[in-house]
Design a protein around this nucleic acid. Structure first.
Lengths: 265, 265
DNA sequence: CGAACATTTGAAGCGCGTCAAAGCCGGTGG
DNA sequence: CCACCGGCTTTGACGCGCTTCAAATGTTCG
């Protein structure tokens, strides 16, 4: 399902192009900024732990990671997935401590970008800065949707909505088609992300399969009729703000919204 | 409680001062930017509806509002509360359509600030810009906490955590003490915010009362022992990223900062 | 080929939802 | 000042979705 390994700059550009078409100069600037060593974290290893001071900004190049929080008694909630092209903790520098952890779900390749480098990129190429701001706003919007997903939807709708979201996000970076995608999550991961137990996830997946809405085996998710899955899940994709190109407002804001805002203290 | 109503600039300054102490010049700049007509929305009226293009930025001056989303079949989820001093939709200008609605829960007084004015303020006073960014990051962090709240906590913990969060946020702008605060929400509001039904909220409130953790009547919430409520709810305040001052556990403000106590307005 | 982990199945129980009706309270008008 | 009304709170009976506990059955990979 993947072509051959795209690099860091390629993944970021693919992602940001969902917000605005980038010029060759802008892409070159991204490439220059991201000419950094690619690190890797092995599956099931934590990249950042709650309570630690935030390090540099991360860009996922390949693999899946997640943000998660834990309660004192061990209950664990995955609060979001990090997919290739995602930039995380855009300007957490303003905060003293991480309020959640980041864990690798598969083998993950990523780069660490310094704040100042990102800031320079944003200042010199305002539309790139806007695109990065857009990504953060989408993260926020997605977090609101997750709140509703867990608060209001039943088990089948929760799982179906999650499959739809992941499909669209992966399609946005060329890693999925409407018919399916590589799916590395375990049922326990799905349980932690949806606020269900893995036992109930298992039973609900069987309902989804019986209804012909998905097939999931050997780490591949197939969606025979994507529209049907959306309907069954009451999923609507607007919160991802993917079709923004040329329809958005605020074209001429220089340097993102808070030009000074990305600076550390 | 408030002898005379604090104005828009006062509320914003109080809020931002949780991030950084502001200089007289910075405060003057905020006042100049916020010298705007105060509008008001009546209780239970929507200020912005999902799907509409974002208008200007809002600053809540007094009263409570909420962000909420609805499913096609009418299920409703409150995804966050907007309290005095909160700035909402900081830079939604980059997005074409609102992905959620904003509704007034009480009579609300607010000002609408143009993006350009906010941007100028941020440019000329970088620390104010940082403080505004800080507010947005805290909003994001809070949204993650809500995801965990609904996904992992039981009914009692959900309500208790919500009471704790509101207490700290209101204290941060001088509208609460650890002993309690004016509480305008109905049990239906609480249900929509916690992903429960109002019937179950009612029963859970009775448990909280029976355990001596809260008393809630005639729109006033009292918390006899704030630390006990935090413990019972597995609440930890780090995600709010407030400067750790006197609001932490085991510390009762004698008489409180507000000698009038919880006198209604 | 066996250890570790992931998926699947079964049985039993509880938390929370649903439905419905009864109090309660503040506000409004006669 | 009382009568009434609408919204909020409270209560009861009942049922279901999801959890819990436990064990069996794949599946992956050294």
């Amino acid at each position: 399902m993947q072509d051959e390994d795209p690099g860091a700059a390629e993944m970021l550009a693919r992602h940001l192009e969902n917000f605005a078409t980038l010029s060759p100069e802008e892409i070159a600037a991204i490439e220059a900024t991201l000419a950094l060593p690619v690190r890797s974290g092995s599956a099931r290893r934590d990249l950042i732990v709650e309570g630690a001071p935030p390090r540099a900004v991360f860009l996922i190049v390949s693999g899946w990671a997640c943000r998660f929080k834990t309660l004192e008694d061990g209950r664990r909630q995955i609060v979001g997935f990090l997919l290739p092209g995602d930039v995380c903790d855009l300007n957490n520098v303003l905060l003293a401590r991480m309020d959640h952890s980041i864990g690798a779900l598969t083998e993950v390749r990523y780069v660490e970008i310094s704040n100042t480098a990102l800031q320079r990129l944003s200042l010199e190429h305002p539309r790139v800065g806007q695109a990065l701001s857009w990504q953060m706003l989408v993260t926020l919007s997605t977090q609101r949707e997750w709140t509703m997903n867990i608060g209001q939807r039943n088990a089948l709708e929760r799982l179906g909505s999650l499959f739809c979201e992941l499909s669209l996000r992966l399609q946005a970076v060329g890693l999925a088609t409407p018919l399916g995608y590589d799916f590395p999550l375990t049922q326990t991961d799905l349980a932690d992300a949806t606020g269900l137990t893995s036992v109930h996830v298992n039973r609900t997946l069987q309902h989804l399969r019986a209804a012909g809405l998905i097939s999931l085996s050997s780490r591949v998710l197939r969606i025979p009729d994507y529209a049907a899955l959306e309907d069954a899940s009451l999923f609507t994709p607007e919160y991802l703000h993917l079709d923004q190109r040329d329809t958005r407002r605020g074209h001429n804001l220089p340097g993102g919204v808070f030009p000074g805002g990305l600076a550390g203290r």
